[in-house]
Nucleic acid binder design. Sequence first.
DNA 1: CTTGACCTTGACGTTGATGTCAAGGTTTAT
DNA 2: ATAAACCTTGACATCAACGTCAAGGTCAAG
Lengths: 126, 126
Amino acid sequence: MRIGELARRAGVSTRALRYYEQQGLITARRSANGYREYGETDLRLVSEIRSLLAVGFTLEDARPFVACLRAGHALGGSCPESVAVYQRKLAEIDDEIRTLLTRRAEVAAQLTTACPGCVLRKAGKP
Amino acid sequence: MRIGELARRAGVSTRALRYYEQQGLITARRSANGYREYGETDLRLVSEIRSLLAVGFTLEDARPFVACLRAGHALGGSCPESVAVYQRKLAEIDDEIRTLLTRRAEVAAQLTTACPGCVLRKAGKP
DNA sequence: CTTGACCTTGACGTTGATGTCAAGGTTTAT
DNA sequence: ATAAACCTTGACATCAACGTCAAGGTCAAG
C-alpha cells in the first residue's frame, strides 16, 4: 500500500509517516515512480509507535519497540531494551506525579492564604 | 539599581528580565544613558514571577499576580483575577495527575504483559 | 487531454522561556 | 588611554512532533 492508505489505516498523517521514516523508525520500499510502498508489517509498526506516543513516550523511546517488532517478536515490549524503557518511563511518570502532587499542595496552600475558603473541597468530604 | 544587580538579587538572568519587560510584566525607568533603573518593588515583582514559574505557572498566568502587587496589595494572589488563575491551575494540575495515573497504570500493565515480574513493587509490600 | 487525486522533496511555522552571539555604547578604575 | 565590566538592541537557536505551504511529478478516469 502507499503512504496515503497506510496513513488512513493507521490514523496518522502522511507527514507523520515521513517524519518517522526520517527519524529512522520505519523504512519503505520505493516503487518505480518513487512512491513509498508499505506492507502490513509497517501498519503494525506504526500502530505500536502511536500507542506508545499516546501514553507519553517519545519517538526515541519507541525505537527499541519497533526494533523488537522487526526482529520478529509479537510484542514490541518483549525485548530487554524495551523493558528497560518501560521501567525508565515508569520511574519518570512517578517522578512527575510526585512533582505535581507537591505543586498542587503548594498552590492550594497559596490559594488558602490568599483567599481562605476558596479551595475547592475534594468530592466525598461534605 | 540596574539590570545586573536586579538579576543577581532575584536569581535570574538579565535576559529573563528583558523578556519579562518585553512581555509587559515589568517595566523600568531609563536613566540618561538608556540603562534600565529598577527599585525594590521590581525585585518583589520578579520574585513573585519566579515563584509562580517554579510551580508550573506560565508568564501569562503570572500577569494578574503582578498587576495585583502593583495595585498595592501585599500578596499577588489576593485579587479576584489571581484567585481565578489559582483555581484554574489547580484544576489543570488535577487533570494532569489523573492523566499520569492512567498512563502509569497502562504502562505498568504493558510491562507486566511483556515481562511478568518485571514491574517494581511499591515499597511496603514485600 | 485535462481534471483530480495521488505522490515527491524542501523548508518554514508552531510553543515558551530563555541561551547565546553579534556589534556596539558607557562607565569606572588604573 | 585603555582594559574591564557594565549596559543596549536585535536576532537566531533550542526541544518535539509534526502542520502547512510551495512547486512539481504521476496516474487513472472521463
